[in-house]
Design a protein around this nucleic acid. Sequence first.
DNA 1: TTTATGACCTGAG
DNA 2: ACTCAGGCCATAA
Length: 110
Amino acid sequence: MRHGRAKADYDAERFAEEVCDVVSRIPRGRVISYGTIARLLCAPGYARRVGGVLKSVPETAHLPCHRVVSAAGRLVPGWEAQRRLLETEGVPFLDNGCVDMRRAIWEEVR
DNA sequence: TTTATGACCTGAG
DNA sequence: ACTCAGGCCATAA
């Protein structure tokens, strides 16, 4: 999904690989949003697709999917264990139950 | 082909 | 601070 790829060139398989690659590099204790991942892959507008990819990622992949949250810091609906996993890593939460994005967001380095 | 469906996002109110 | 509508886009039905 390198720079400015047109919709017609979209390749689900490749997109999924690139998403997983980014997720695998999220540091412990930090989080990133679906939309940010999409932008990192030069595919703005594909935030929903990022979620779709993660949904189908098998446990055996051992990816830190719990570190991906919405731009507002909301957790995955229905995934009860996510909060505990994040708290274990020291991810800060707000009173409203969302991740404190201002402190926990991961800005890709380099 | 058309409609419905999300692990989404942003701007308004 | 919180909800909502409108926009988003590949997939499944």
